[in-house]
Write a protein that binds this DNA or RNA. Structure first.
Length: 640
RNA sequence: GCCCACGUAGCUCAGUCGGUAGAGCACAUCCUUGGUAAGGAUGAGGUCACCGGUUCAAAUCCGGUCGUGGGCUCCA
């Protein structure tokens, strides 16, 4: 039988059934074969080595396609597994999927792997690449596959097989190695030119902490050296920007063992930045029709019983404390307090919406292993708000929250966002109808804003649907900041109502939202995003005045005073050091402007200034300089 | 919480085979008054995370605790 194939260049031809896509391309369109990792036949992604049994439109997938990369890394995972099995025949393989920037393989073996082992495995991989092993797919009846993996002692594969319901499965072989796999895969190991193993970590079998802990090897691989180098450079850059490192170097914050893990000490410069963020945040909220609240850090345990947190959030809360026979709880959330304020009087539909915001500090028990710098802590301040509104106001409220949060995030220099709409999960409270109304309102709000979003089906919280916004920083890493959640649970539990037009009591809709998320985490994100070089409006020190010798101290003091009077935050470095030394220090401290004062400046009554990262900018009148930077500050300009 | 690694001066890190600690930077004093990323000299700084064990002797070996890092799980 012949198959009708449309080649990537559009030509049509008939080929005998059973030819592989690789063979067809090699014969009729060899230039497409060069970087191909797999092909797409109509909508199906197939191995280049797989015999074709249907005709259709053939296109080529390369490393440049997301799907192509997945295949490439999946094959890389197999290659690593092969190397591991050759070096450690007793190792049992679990799973080895491709991930965002590479792959991992979970392995069960008695010996704990060392970094030296990694180097050896990597070297073995390079060897296998050179051997250019063909990767062959084989379809087996499931019982034969079970026999095969039993022979190989691959217990985990047998467990996986026991859950597969199809009659047959596919096995991929390269050399003496075989792995259970749906595929598709590269045609040959030689394509994996630049493999790189990165780290070893523990991981539970199937991600369940009741299961055995396996050893996970993370790695990546690229077809071109330049791509590997680029990737490694990006890792280096991420290390340079690490907020924990910069936090220390720039004296922004610390975490102290004597104080406790996950608890942040904001040093003067960090506190200054936080204050700048908070001031901006408060003013923006007033303008956007919010009122501000302050609420206590503890409350009677009963409040948390009513809210339900004691049931569904207990493992994240610190233990209660006993005060005068009554138990009190450190707050993990602000909502119950805001609800009590709402309930302090009867509310009319005319008063809604009420938008109440609080920079509320909450404490949550996080397992020790998950703490991470500013990103994951035990005490943090949410830029929280609760909007109490009528059902018909949900949509317009969400639209304004979306506008508001994008305004915030853009002000801080974030331009790329990934937006997710999470819908009803399996376990939920509230009525089906209210879920539909709320989810639709969120959806319409997103559509109205015209922003691209992704639906995460079933990923909503049990108490309502939500919109999450993740930002992408300069290194294209994703960070969760904004969350907007509709809540059917708390209004029910606390009996939160308003009196409608009809004189009847109606259930109030409650929307939780945090825009920056937590001030701690957002600070961490900012440090990494800016690499410690804060824009003028946030920089704790905006300009360093650097006199060259003692003769210039008096003039420098005048300059500093004039700047201070203009509201500029200045540091005068009148130490007994050479100007090069002072510049170096100001640069490493990432101070945006340096003002150098020497004989020339004193004589001509000017200043010389220097921009961080950019060097000498020449002479200028002090008043012109002040106008220039005042503009930069007022515009919250993001410079370098 | 679990797996693995780590914890030495304010910071970054050496410290061999067990014989009670060292560098650079920072800091202090002095010399130097120097024009765009480190001038020189001298000095002060350490219960080697903590607790216990082995040993004549522990930063070093063993056990435990605390903390940190990379992950797993979870999340602002």
């Amino acid at each position: 039988m012949e198959l009708n194939i449309i080649l990537p260049d559009g030509r049509e031809l008939a080929v005998p059934e059973g030819k592989t896509a690789g063979e067809i391309l090699k014969e009729f369109a060899p230039k497409y074969l060069k970087n191909a990792v797999a092909v797409r036949l109509n909508d199906e992604v197939l191995d280049l080595n797989r015999p074709l049994h249907t005709g259709g439109k053939l296109s080529v997938l390369t490393f440049d396609d997301p799907e192509g990369r997945e295949i490439f890394w999946h094959s890389s995972a197999h290659l690593m597994a092969q190397a591991v099995k050759e070096l450690f025949p007793d190792a049992k393989l679990a799973i080895g999927p491709p991930i965002k920037e590479g792959f991992y393989y979970d392995i069960d073996m008695d010996r704990t792997l060392t970094p030296e082992d990694l180097r050896e495995i990597e070297a073995r991989m390079q060897q296998l690449v050179k051997e250019a092993l063909e990767i062959i797919r084989e379809d087996l009846p499931i019982n034969e596959a079970v026999r095969l993996f039993k022979e190989m002692g691959e217990d985990y594969k047998i467990e996986i097989l026991s859950e597969i319901e199809d009659d047959s499965v596919s096995v991929y072989r390269q050399g003496d190695f075989a792995d259970l796999c749906r595929g598709p895969h590269l045609p040959n190991t030689r394509a994996i030119k630049y493999p790189k193993l990165l780290s070893i970590a523990g991981a539970y079998w199937r991600g369940d902490e009741h299961n055995k802990m396996l050893q996970r090897i993370y790695g990546t691989a690229f077809p071109k050296k330049s791509l590997l180098e680029e990737y490694l450079n990006r890792l280096e850059e991420a290390k340079r920007r690490d907020h924990r490192k910069l936090g220390k170097e720039l004296d922004l914050f610390s975490i102290n063992e004597a104080v406790g893990p996950g608890l942040i000490l904001w040093h003067p410069k960090g506190a200054f930045i936080r204050n700048a963020v908070e001031t901006f945040w408060r003013e923006a909220h007033f303008k956007a029709g919010y009122d501000l609240l302050y609420t206590p850090h503890i409350a009677r345990l009963d409040l948390w019983r009513t809210s339900g947190h004691l049931d569904f959030y207990r493992e994240s809360m610190f233990s209660p404390m006993q005060i005068d026979e009554v138990e009190y709880q450190l707050k993990p959330m602000n909502c119950p307090f805001h609800i009590q304020i709402y309930k302090s009087q009867l509310r009319s539909y005319r008063n809604l919406p009420l938008r109440w915001a609080e920079l509320g500090t909450v404490y949550r028990y996080e397992r020790s292993g998950v703490l991470h710098g500013l990103m994951r802590v035990r005490g943090f301040t949410q830029d929280d708000a609760h909007i109490f509104c009528r059902p018909d106001q949900i949509e317009s409220e969400i639209v304004s929250v979306l506008d508001f949060t994008l305004f915030f995030l853009r002000t801080f220099g974030f331009e790329k966002f990934n937006i997710y709409l999470s819908t009803q999960p399996e376990k939920f409270v509230g009525t089906q109808e209210s879920w539909e109304i709320a989810t639709e309102a969120l959806r319409r709000a997103l559509e109205k804003k015209g922003v691209a979003y992704q639906v995460d089906p079933g990923e909503g919280v049990f108490y309502g649907p939500k919109i999450d916004i993740k930002i992408q920083d300069v290194l294209n890493r994703e960070w969760q900041c904004t969350t907007i959640q509709v809540d059917f649970n708390l209004p029910e539990r606390f009996n939160v109502n308003y009196i409608g037009e009809d004189g009847q009591s109606h259930r109030t809709i409650m929307i939780h939202r945090a825009l920056l998320g937590s001030l701690e985490r957002f600070f961490g994100i900012l440090i990494e995003h800016y690499g410690g070089a804060f824009p003028m409006w946030l920089a704790p020190v905006q300009a360093a005045v650097l006199p060259i010798t003692e003769r210039h101290h008096e003039y420098a003091a005048g300059v500093a005073q004039a700047l201070t009077n203009a509201g500029v935050r200045v540091f005068t470095d009148d130490r007994n050091e050479k100007v090069g030394y002072k510049i170096r220090e100001a640069e490493t401290q990432k101070i945006p402007y340096m003002i150098i004062i020497g004989d020339k400046e004193v004589e001509q009554d000017k200043i010389s200034y220097r921009k961080r990262h950019k060097g000498d900018q020449g002479q200028i009148d002090l008043k012109d300089f002040i106008v220039m930077i005042a503009e930069e500050i007022a515009a919250k300009k993001i410079t370098d």
